[in-house]
């Protein structure tokens, strides 16, 4: 099971808390999937005088580890300020750092991300950066002190799965000691299983569950897929074999 910044987590499934039909369905999705971490958006919900307290109280009742995020932040300053507010609100040094670079695709701003991560690490935060699968970007994030990396599978909310399995595999190979989480873009449990088969430590998703016709069933589906993928990765899977071009004789035919 994953260890993030020294903390052991009991599940490889991490879920967001936005867009569910109701907080009751959100809670049931967590209960039935056994997800270990809930990310919580702060920027827009805080309002003035932390008007979002009622919803956050419901999220606290989930009895999982909370990972506040800086969703909706488009600049370094905004993200850093939101992280500081989140630390006060949730009494945690953990922050899922999002610095949005493109308002439409919600693609991360890699340059702002490194800058914000450096400031937050300096300020004592444990940063979970939402990044692309770019190797150099990930190296920079590790250099400034990130000890978890959260590359996207595909843009937020698209459900396209793993757009660049090669890039994700390459990250795993380059950072054997850093916990890696596929964050964003997953639409189906099979895609989550694929991420785990690549040796990732966990997956984080929101829309695929929250916007499913039956969010609770979909959350359970993801939980099982994540477990299946993780088992496969531990089991040292066979390498695929190409039988299209025969190299050995076929039964009933003479040896050549």
């Amino acid at each position: 099971m994953p260890v993030f910044y020294g903390e052991h987590i009991e599940s490889r499934l991490m879920l967001g808390t936005a867009q569910y039909p109701s907080p009751a369905i959100l809670a049931e999705a967590f209960r039935q999937s056994g997800a270990g971490i809930a990310t919580v958006s702060v920027r827009r919900e805080a309002g003035q005088d932390t008007a979002g307290q009622d919803f956050w109280a419901l999220v606290r009742e989930l009895d999982v580890v909370l990972l506040p995020n800086t969703a909706h932040c488009h600049s370094v300053r905004e993200a850093v300020t939101t992280a500081q507010m989140a630390r006060e609100l949730f009494d945690t040094n953990w922050i899922k750092l999002e610095v949005i670079g493109h308002a439409d695709t919600l693609q991360p701003d890699p340059f702002g991300l490194v800058e914000a991560a450096a400031q937050l690490v300096e300020d004592g935060f444990d940063v979970f950066p939402y990044c692309t699968e770019d190797l150099v970007l990930c190296e920079r994030l590790v250099e400034v002190g990130c000890r978890v990396l959260m590359p996207w599978g595909a843009p937020i909310g698209t459900g396209l799965g793993l757009n660049n399995p090669y890039g994700l595999r390459s990250l795993r190979a380059h950072f054997p000691e850093i916990p890696l989480v596929v964050d964003a873009g997953l639409g189906l449990p099979s895609q989550a299983a694929h991420a785990m088969e690549l040796g990732y430590d966990a997956v984080l998703l929101n829309t695929a569950v929250a916007k499913a016709g039956d969010p609770v069933a979909m959350a359970k589906g993801f939980a099982r897929a994540v477990e299946a993928g993780a088992l496969a990765a531990e089991a040292d899977p066979m390498d695929p074999r190409d039988m299209a071009a025969p190299s050995t004789p076929v039964f009933g035919k003479a040896f050549l």
Binding site: R44, E45, A46, G47, Q48, A51, G52, Q53, D54, F55
Partner: peptide
């Protein structure tokens, strides 16, 4: 539809 209880502040 935002999860907070503000009643008088449109952003």
């Amino acid at each position: 539809q935002i999860e907070n209880g503000e009643r008088d502040r449109a952003t």
